[in-house]
C-alpha cells in the first residue's frame, strides 16, 4: 500500500482556556492516502474543525503526532508549517472566509502570490473553471453564498495543492447549491489527483466520498460506508 499522505496518531487536544469542557480530541488516529476523497462525518462539536486546524498546522496538539506527506508537523517548525499551507494545502471553509476587501480575482490571485506563482491568467482560468467568468471584479458582498464558495474553491485549487481540507463546505448553502459545490470540488480533486478531506455533518456530502470516517466526541470511531450511513 502507498505511504499515507496524512497520518494522525493518538491525537489529543485540550483548550487551556476552556477547563469546563472535555478535550476536543481524545486520541484520534487516521490515515489518508494520496488522491483519496474522504468525508469526516460527525455532529457539531465532535472535533472535526479542531482536527482540521491541527492537520493544517494552525494549532498545536496537546499530545500525539501528525504527519503530512511523511513530515512530522511538530518537527517542521513554524516556517515549515507555513510553507506547507502556502504550497501543499488548500482550505475551503463553511463561511467561505474570503477577504472582504479583495475582489473575486484578487482573492484567488492572493493564493498564487503566496505560492510564489503570481500569474493573472491562471487565476482567471481558475475562476472560469468554477463558473465565475465575468464576475472576477466583484467583491464578496456582491456575490451569492454559492458564488462565494466557488471563489473559495478556486482559491484552494488554483495553486494545485496536494491536499484540500474542506470544513463544512456546504454548511452555509442550500441543498441544490451544496450539491453543485460538492460536485465541482470532488470532480476537480479527482481530476487532478488531489487528496480531499471534507468535514461534514450532512449525510449527503458522504455520497461524494470514497471513504467515510465517523467522528464522535473527539475520536474517529469507525470507518463506514455510504450505504450504512444512508440506512
Amino acid at each position: 500500500m502507498a505511504e499515507p499522505v496524512i497520518r494522525v496518531i493518538d491525537l489529543w487536544k485540550d483548550y487551556a482556556d476552556d477547563l469546563t469542557n472535555a478535550p476536543a480530541l481524545r486520541g484520534s488516529s487516521l490515515e489518508i492516502s494520496a488522491g483519496e476523497v474522504v468525508a469526516l462525518f460527525g455532529k457539531s462539536g465532535s472535533g472535526k474543525s479542531t482536527l482540521f486546524n491541527l492537520i493544517a498546522g494552525l494549532d498545536h496538539p496537546t499530545k500525539g503526532r501528525i504527519e503530512v506527506e511523511g513530515q512530522d508537523l511538530e518537527l517542521l517548525g513554524e516556517k515549515g508549517r507555513t510553507n506547507l499551507r502556502r504550497f501543499r494545502l488548500g482550505f475551503v471553509f463553511q463561511f467561505f472566509n474570503l477577504l472582504p476587501t479583495l475582489t473575486a480575482f484578487e482573492n484567488v490571485f492572493l493564493s498564487l502570490e503566496l505560492a510564489a506563482k503570481p500569474d493573472a491568467a491562471v487565476a482567471r482560468d481558475a475562476l472560469k473553471e468554477v463558473g465565475l467568468a465575468g464576475k472576477e471584479h466583484r467583491y464578496p458582498n456582491e456575490l451569492s453564498g454559492g458564488e462565494q464558495q466557488r471563489v473559495a474553491i478556486a482559491r484552494a485549487i488554483v495553486k494545485r495543492p496536494s491536499i484540500i481540507l474542506a470544513d463544512e463546505p456546504t454548511g452555509n448553502l442550500d441543498t441544490a447549491t451544496g450539491n453543485q459545490i460538492l460536485d465541482l470540488l470532488t470532480h476537480r480533486c479527482r481530476e487532478s489527483g488531489t487528496t480531499l478531506v471534507m468535514a461534514t455533518h450532512a449525510s449527503f456530502t458522504c455520497r461524494y466520498a470514497d471513504r467515510i470516517l465517523r467522528m464522535v466526541d473527539g475520536i474517529v470511531v469507525e470507518e463506514t460506508s455510504g450505504e450504512v450511513l444512508a440506512r
Binding site: A56, L58, R85, R86, L89, F91, N97, L98, P100
Partner: peptide
C-alpha cells in the same frame, strides 16, 4: 482576515 491569511500560508 489575519486568520484567513495565515491559513492560506501568509
Amino acid at each position: 482576515d489575519t486568520g484567513i491569511l495565515r491559513s492560506l500560508g501568509a
